[in-house]
Design a protein around this nucleic acid. Structure first.
Lengths: 161, 161
DNA sequence: GCGCAAATTGCAATATTATAACATTTTATT
DNA sequence: AATAAAATGTTATAATATTGCAATTTGCGC
């Protein structure tokens, strides 16, 4: 199992660039409008592999100088990005993170490090299936599932925190 | 698979009574103090099989007439109840629900109906194991996992909503 | 029972996250 | 260019949660 990029030293500019390119491609094919603002918000979300709160995004946007949007603006952009499957919301943190594999619908789980906050998205068929069976067994019809796993990432384990 | 109590017509007073009895027993053995306030909060949480927000609990307490606690009071009681494993917090709803099988530590998942909000706690070994394997595969050390599944409960499916 | 320390609760203020309502601007299309 | 729809701006406020400190209650040793 290759270690997720997020845990390794890597050229993060590439993560950002890839995310923006994918977003443009997806929005184009969907006929959705990836405006400047939305793209700026997406870029901020992708500034790291840590989930970012709406107000943190707001501050980062303000630092750019190009306009100081108000909360509704950011929330609307985030709503749009979620609808397009470009970002996920982590409800246990009230924060947002870029989607790892946008475009195709997928069921994902999140590994959230409680020390460094680095968060990795995984798409485990085993987990998805187990969840599906578990719901079926109770005659429950799944619309959406949210799996957030909190613990220690490999890096932080090494640091013996 | 027996249908969960929450979905069936049942004597709900018994759910409340059982929860309170179990809570007293558990706190006693743990040397934890289940005060009047904490017990009142627990009773409110158990008033239904729907998750309840902190401010909703606050209002219910106020209706009783016996003092109108302020938010911190309720949040502290909820923190205590969570520490004792007597209630769970559903982060996707910012709401709290009574624990189904308090006492022993357990890994649970929640089936949340998007129509009637009735929420059932399940403890699927398959899901727990799949989650554990998925984390292991990324060399991630789980501290806690949160699985919230949103969809249509059996009753609401029948009503064809 | 009495006094002390610790735990709990009360209380006021405030922080944080999110949305409502409506005005304005931008965009795509005619 | 005119229009309608979409997006953004703006102001205010709602909903959720916490901080800090004072007052009270409780458990416990004496």
């Amino acid at each position: 199992m290759a270690s997720p990029t997020a845990y390794a030293r890597h050229d993060h500019h590439r993560c950002i660039d890839d995310a923006l390119l994918a977003a443009r491609r997806i929005c184009k094919t969907q006929g959705a409008r990836l405006t400047t603002l939305r793209e700026r918000v997406l870029a901020k979300v992708w500034q790291s592999h840590r989930p970012l709160g709406a107000y943190a995004i707001l501050e980062l946007l303000a630092e750019d100088g190009e306009g100081h949007p108000a909360p509704p603006t950011v929330y609307r952009a985030l709503d749009f990005l979620q609808e397009q499957g470009l970002v996920h919301r982590l409800s246990s943190l009230n924060a947002y993170i870029g989607c790892d594999s946008p475009g195709q619908p997928h069921d994902s789980q999140f590994l959230i490090c409680r020390h460094c906050q680095v968060t990795v998205e995984v798409a485990s068929r085993k987990v998805s299936e187990a969840v599906a069976r578990c719901a079926e067994a109770k005659d429950f019809n799944i619309q959406h599932s949210n799996v957030e796993i909190v613990g220690d990432c490999p890096n932080c384990q090494k640091k013996a925190l």
